[in-house]
Design a protein around this nucleic acid. Structure first.
Lengths: 147, 147
DNA sequence: ATGTGTGCAAAGCATTTGCAGCCAG
DNA sequence: CTGGCTGCAAATGCTTTGCACACAT
């Protein structure tokens, strides 16, 4: 099951954050977008559309920061573009982004966990895979071998 | 042995790039900085100091681009800051950056290769580890467990 | 009432681009 | 001599910040 917008809002409330229209709007968008890779700009645009409210980019950033602080949301850096946000519960996988075609895919959680375990065993470093993507060539582009 | 500035310059020449003062200056800095993580701003500053020449940021970026195009240089994204550049021959390891103390360390090449192999086996994706860092907590910060 | 959250505007930072002149080939 | 390369300046894209007012508590 996926977390609902009201759960996000409630969690913010419990953390001492005030519940406002702007925050509600951002929570709706974020909750509705499970699995999608939304940039701050995407969230801003959708939040404006769904809630006719007047809403500023900076408010979106501040709300996303609050959600991250509350441990409900996380952002990843997929490539050279803007950061993308996703629910914390959707985390744990590793993003793979093809430097040739730009396609992004994911490495399943179990695989990612194996890698994280290997890194811990060898260095003691507790890796938070999925914060940064891994760049490379997808199977299709690698097959072209003329990159 | 490490590559020298003149080898970098020569390689640019062979690729059809013209040899200029600006390019020489950038090559000196890059060749002298093996193993260091230099941002474009660092390179700009050092290149200005070492070669009294007048030099512009944009020229540095353009030269770095030329060096990358020639396969001599690569850049990595270590964190939220600027990209860092290093000689292509120094690549192959995976950067680990602690989200708490900001310290960066490296995962040895053999470990990184094992991971890359696991990713290929499971998805066909040819990972270029070391382009993006892995975020997480270093052993020391993880031990604090109050993050 | 009080101070947190808001929109607005402007700054910030890393990087890119347009352009007219310069210099390597 | 000719086009690639330069410095300069300005623009870009994403994100952050300062501020006075608004509103959730």
């Amino acid at each position: 099951m996926h977390i609902t917008a009201s759960k996000l809002v409630d969690a913010l409330g419990e953390r001492g954050y005030r519940i406002t229209m702007a925050r509600r709007a951002v929570c709706e968008v974020v909750a509705a977008a499970h699995d999608e890779h939304l940039s701050a700009a995407d969230i801003y645009q959708r939040a404006r559309e769904t809630s006719g409210t007047r809403l500023d980019r900076s408010t979106v950033y501040r709300t996303l920061e609050a959600l991250e602080d509350a441990g409900l949301l996380a952002h990843s850096h997929l490539g050279h573009g803007p950061s993308v946000y996703h629910l914390a519960e959707d985390a744990g996988h590793q993003h793979l982004i093809c430097r040739n075609c730009g396609q992004t895919m994911t490495l399943p959680r179990e695989e990612a966990d194996l890698i994280a375990d290997a890194i811990i065993a060898s260095t003691g470093f507790v890796a938070d895979l999925n914060h940064f993507a891994v760049s490379g060539l997808c199977a299709d582009c690698a097959a072209l071998d003329d990159i």
